[in-house]
């Protein structure tokens, strides 16, 4: 039971963004893909969500190519939360969450008793009970993200893919959402694959990290193996001080300077704007 990416090459507008990439995600794992802008992290996630078809290579879910599996069957196993999903102005939270049942419904699309029970369960897990009759567009960013996660949960998936779920949120909501995702991983054994921008959050909440550089896997491993001085310098061009978070048993770092700065000084500050 796993998600396996095998020799996948992805083009975006004719030029290869990801080349012959290989990795796999075990069931129950919580994996975060990190990398600089343009490293291909969102692109690879799009292939996992079957929004991009690989030019080469195959994405397997439980041994079957996801691009050849019936999309409705796949939707019962794999849920996706894109970066900025849209919603009509007047859909309520409960309306939205109930759409998560769509892959399980018959041709007529009517919800049965069991479907209502699952929707109630998803609302309870994400603590959306008090908000379920509110209109989605009136919610705060964090509440809205919880509503979308609840919709994904209503699919009763085994895998949940999230593309930068915290990017547009205030910092307190960022942690709220990450805590919720971690809880789903621990308590429901939901396998999580996500892309995060904040590396300290990635190290704090993930079991494994995959660091991409120029469309290739640069390093894969536990946060302790990936969040190191050399990896961060090579992948993100930053010099850091690394500390240990004894309470959460994970590393964290403070950026000290851009490692490109030395080069800039050597060339008399030409092009400093690149690191801003």
């Amino acid at each position: 039971m796993a998600l396996k990416v095998s020799k996948v090459t992805l083009d975006y507008g004719g030029k290869p963004v990801v080349e012959e990439i290989d990795f796999h995600v075990e069931k129950g794992d919580m994996v975060t893909i990190i990398g600089a802008n343009g490293s291909g992290k969102s692109t690879i996630l799009k292939a996992l969500c079957r929004n991009l078809i690989p030019q080469n290579g195959i994405v397997y879910l439980d041994g079957k190519s996801i691009h050849k599996t019936d999309t409705r069957e796949l939707a019962k196993k794999l849920a996706v939360l894109p970066q900025s999903p849209r919603v009509p102005d007047d859909f309520t939270v409960r309306d939205l969450i109930s759409y998560g049942r769509f892959p399980h419904l018959g041709w007529t699309g009517r919800l049965q008793k069991n479907d209502f029970a699952v929707v109630d369960w998803a609302i309870e897990v994400t603590k959306m009970g008090a908000l379920q009759h509110r209109v989605v567009s009136t919610l705060s960013g964090g509440e809205r993200q919880r509503a979308w996660i609840a919709m994904a949960l209503a699919q009763q998936p085994e895998f949940l893919l999230l593309d930068e779920p915290t990017t547009f949120l205030d910092i307190c909501y960022q942690f709220e959402v990450l805590e919720l995702i971690k809880k789903l991983n621990m308590e429901l054994n939901l396998t999580i694959v996500m892309v995060l921008h904040d590396l300290n959050q990635a190290a704090r909440y993930s079991n494994h990290l995959i660091a991409l550089k120029d469309g290739k896997v640069y390093r894969k491993g536990t946060p302790r193996e990936v969040i190191t001085k050399t990896v961060l310098e090579d992948v993100f061009h930053i010099k850091v001080k690394i500390f240990n978070d004894h309470e959460h048993h994970c590393p964290y770092f403070i950026p000290v300077s851009s490692s490109l700065a030395d080069k800039f000084e050597a060339t008399e500050n030409v092009g400093r704007e690149h690191c801003v």
């Binding site: 999309t71 409705r72 939707a75 996706v80 894109p82 999903p85 919603v87 009509p88």
Partner: peptide
Amino acid sequence: NILMLGDEIAVSLGLR
């Protein structure tokens, strides 16, 4: 209605 949620969500929900 599902199509109104954007293509990515619609695909994720198993809509062709």
